[in-house]
């Protein structure tokens, strides 16, 4: 390795910036446009981790990722206001997920209410529009609905359980390139 190259590297990583420990960054740095390579790198890495996990652990991969997501959901939601009503909890959840996922409560036109009771179970349809999991899967050419989706399931279930104190389950109804339909089953 030539000395010139090392000097170039040193120069690239040197600046006159004075960074104090009390300095709190107020902006995302660098700008999002410059983060594109990082974002794609993270998506690629996540995709490869999930693919390898599936190859080694088989169906057990879903359990691992679901548990990871659930822990994350509980961890994040414990700082949020506790509520009894599911509607309020979903509102809290929507704030919680902002920037990573966006979803809306949805119902088919033949249903009168958003909380649907059918075949002895109570559930709510959620349509997930923006989703970092979908982005990652499509970036890597992976199928939707696999282990990486389980992290989102765990996340939502963990957060709902933490906010309402009620047990819940999230099921995939349909996955699409622009939105996914999920069923939040309340227990």
């Amino acid at each position: 390795m030539s000395g010139g190259y090392i000097d170039e590297l040193h120069e690239a990583f040197h600046s006159d910036l004075i960074y104090r420990s009390e300095d709190i960054p107020l902006d995302c740095s660098p700008k999002p446009k410059e983060m594109e390579q990082t974002l794609h790198g993270v998506m690629k890495l996540n995709g490869l981790i999930i693919r390898s996990l599936e190859e080694i652990a088989g169906r057990g991969a879903n359990a691992v990722t679901y548990r990871a997501g659930k822990k994350f959901g509980h961890e994040v939601a414990k700082y949020f206001q506790k509520r009894d009503d599911v509607e309020g909890a979903l509102h809290e959840l929507s704030d919680l997920l902002r920037g990573q996922y966006s979803f809306e409560v949805w119902k088919p036109e033949d249903k009168e209410t958003f909380i649907i009771e059918e075949n002895g179970e109570t559930f709510i349809y959620l349509v997930f529009h923006d989703c970092i999991v979908r982005q990652t899967l499509r970036r890597n050419g992976l199928d939707q609905g696999g282990p990486l989706c389980q992290t989102l399931f765990g996340y939502v279930v963990g957060a709902i359980e933490e906010i309402t104190g009620r047990k819940a389950k999230l099921e995939i109804v349909h996955t699409g390139p622009n939105a996914c339909l999920k069923k939040l089953v309340l227990k």
């Binding site: 949805w106 529009h129 982005q135 996955t175 699409g176 939105a179």
Partner: peptide, 30 residues
Amino acid sequence: NNCMGCLSCHEICPAQALEHRGIYAARRHY
């Protein structure tokens, strides 16, 4: 009115014959 805008039909249609209006386009970071 039952459409939730997943756009699976767009992806699957071999003739690209479909058009949705008034749809929310999800972010495409990928």
